[in-house]
Amino acid sequence: MKKYTCDVCGYEYDPANGDPDNGIAPGTAFEDLPVDWVCPVCGVGKDEFSPAE
């Protein structure tokens, strides 16, 4: 599964870790994140993320 980086703040979403503080279990692919999921650091939406290099 691919990692994604927030274009605004550089936070990296790693599917292996998920985002447990916000109810996202480890192993959740970026594509499967809920549409209202936001960057846990800066708060922008999924559309401001790009696949990590």
Partner: peptide, 9 residues
């Protein structure tokens, strides 16, 4: 050295 969110993008 970029330091995004310390404390702005």
């Amino acid at each position: 050295i970029e330091a995004p969110m310390l404390h702005w993008p």
